[in-house]
Write a protein that binds this DNA or RNA. Structure first.
Lengths: 211, 211, 211, 211
DNA sequence: AATGAATGAGCCTTCATTCAT
DNA sequence: CATGAATGAAGGCTCATTCAT
């Protein structure tokens, strides 16, 4: 029963009936949770902080989520869904593999800096989830990375990319760098996501040049 | 008063005067803290867990450390000192800049996987420290990264490395990837630190090749 | 307003007008409450547990009962009504007082083990009711015990039973033992209600033999 | 760690050192718990009620007891220890079995009414304990009842008591009645424990007379 | 230098009940 | 009649820290 509404996501109707004047309770909780968990971390955010920020009551929260950890898990699910949607767009593009990889490499940086809170939570609070859920999240994340790796392998089989470094290594290195943006990137810094993405992609593609 | 002994580091004498049979209290606490904070995270480790694992009492801990956060800070300081020591060795080596950068790039991966707990703590629990201390730690970490970047700049000024990508970007990308090893590297996996370091360094150096 | 339907007891018509296919809401609640309160106790049974077990909704429950305590009180009333009906049958029987007392003594054991849940609730959750209702329940229970005591007094006045022990003491002792069956009797045990009733009645009647 | 002091029982020293001016924390908690659990029941007594009544803080309570249930269990253990001590005295007495059984029967009533709170808790809150602990308590209680039953069997083998009713039944009936004193006995009532014990013992012994 | 009993604020969660629909 | 989302007041429990010894 709890979390049922969260399962349906933002599609749930607005109880109270108005013309959608105020977002549904689960959505407001997810938004507040994303902000607070990224700011202070999961454990330093109390349920009271959370519901206050979301403008709901504790009871309402527990009507939709079975526990505080469940809220975190819902954030994770939303992040993954977003990532998948982003990458799907790239993967189905046309053109030579170099172009497609470059586009994906830039895009992954841009979407990361656009959802920096998500990333911060992702890499700081994954360990809070139960092992089951950790596995689940990791598996989905791996899929994401695998699509990237597939592009590299495609280029390798065409001899466009070097083959003396496993595609796995390339992908893990690139994603490591991207994931770590959350540790230092600031929206008000000198460089924007597009520029950083451009530099990162340059290094990646040059690094892949065959000997 | 508290923490004074910790400041002196492991050099402190053995209280109780024995023949050094058992390590000093602060050392045992630091070792236990490193293990537990990496395993469960800072907030999910209680002071009781900590002192139990270290085989000391709560009172003893508070004699040496002002707070639980202070223990974490001491772990951070030890990590940084270790990193600095490692890099010093590389930086003072002889030979062409390509060789020195490669050696440093491999070494940074190897020492990271050898001290994986440290890295996990580093990137998961930095936000627990007070802002002052966060800045302090970040500054020291920046120094570490800056020495790496200096190597790159050295190569750039010699036109051995490409100059169309800022050295900063190269260093941040590489360190991002290295720092992220803590999220997926497992000591019992297929590849060891030396191999991963080799691949990563290859990609780095190829990526730096001038156009 | 609430509870009005409960007042009318099981005699209420089936709302929704079906052909009596499913029992009325109050009846299903009472049955579920009897089971759950006996199993886990009143306080460890949530209203949600209760309505789930009864297959009704919370709103429906609060339509018929003013509060959770009211459901408990309704269980008590049903128990008492049942007991009264049982004893009435015995009391109006014919025959010598020894036979009538024996029959009542056996019957009280048998009906107790047949409604063990009722007894468990009775002696474990009486204190949950308001003092008013406790008194009310105790008074009715006392009537029940008084009819038993009246049989004993009848025998005493006929000198069939000893007179050196007050009938009150005899009744309280016997009912204490009977009430306590709920603490240890198990339907799948060696002895059935009839056998235990037989032994208990034997001891009772022998104990009442005049010196 | 928690409960360790409770294990040692009242023998624990008085921290704070005075001349025993104020009882130790566990003792005060046990005394308050016995009173409150008997008055209102376990679940209607909050931990705050408990510590307030005992004049200690919540933290202190959780230093000695792992949970509220643990306090209840400690009460149970104390009750059982008391009962055992009482019965030991009787069992080792001299004289004909009739006399020894009568003495035990009276004593069991007297000690019950003297520790009425204990009994009320015993038969109202046993179900709160974990199944393990319920079994443990029941087993010890059974021992208590078994010693009583052994007296009856002794008389049966000497043909002093009837043999057509199992000693088990006799003991369960008697103890049921005794245990139920908690439901109706009031210290300010007409009859004292000695008188009730006398009547109950009379009925018991007469009931055991051979046919 | 070391102990561990005691503190007390704050945590996550439960739940009987209400009310707009 | 019936629904179930929302309320809000406790509830039991944890834990970093202190302090008399």
């Amino acid at each position: 029963m709890a979390e049922s509404a969260a399962e349906t996501g933002a599609a749930g109707g607005q109880p109270g009936g108005g013309a959608g004047a105020c977002p549904a309770v689960p959505d407001r909780l997810l938004a507040a949770a994303t902000r607070l968990f990224a700011d202070r971390g999961f454990e330093r955010t109390s349920v009271q902080d959370l519901v206050d920020a979301a403008g709901v009551t504790k009871g309402a929260m527990y009507h939709y989520f079975a526990s505080k950890e469940d809220v975190l898990f819902a954030v994770f699910r939303r992040v993954i869904a977003t990532q998948m949607r982003n990458l799907d767009a790239c993967a189905t593009a046309e053109g030579p593999v170099r172009e497609r990889l470059r586009a994906a490499a830039v895009d992954v940086v841009e979407s990361t800096v656009q959802n920096l809170d998500d990333m911060v939570i992702y890499f700081r609070s994954l360990h809070v989830l139960s092992l089951d859920r950790q596995d689940q999240v990791r598996a989905e994340r791996r899929q994401y990375q695998d699509r990237f790796r597939a592009l590299i392998e495609e280029g390798q089989s065409q001899r466009v990319f070097r083959t003396d470094v496993p595609a796995d290594m390339v992908a893990s290195q690139y994603f490591g760098a991207v994931n770590h943006l959350g540790m230092w990137y600031r929206p008000d810094g000198e460089l924007g996501g597009a520029e950083i993405g451009g530099y990162y992609a340059d290094l990646l593609l040059t690094g892949l040049r065959p000997a």
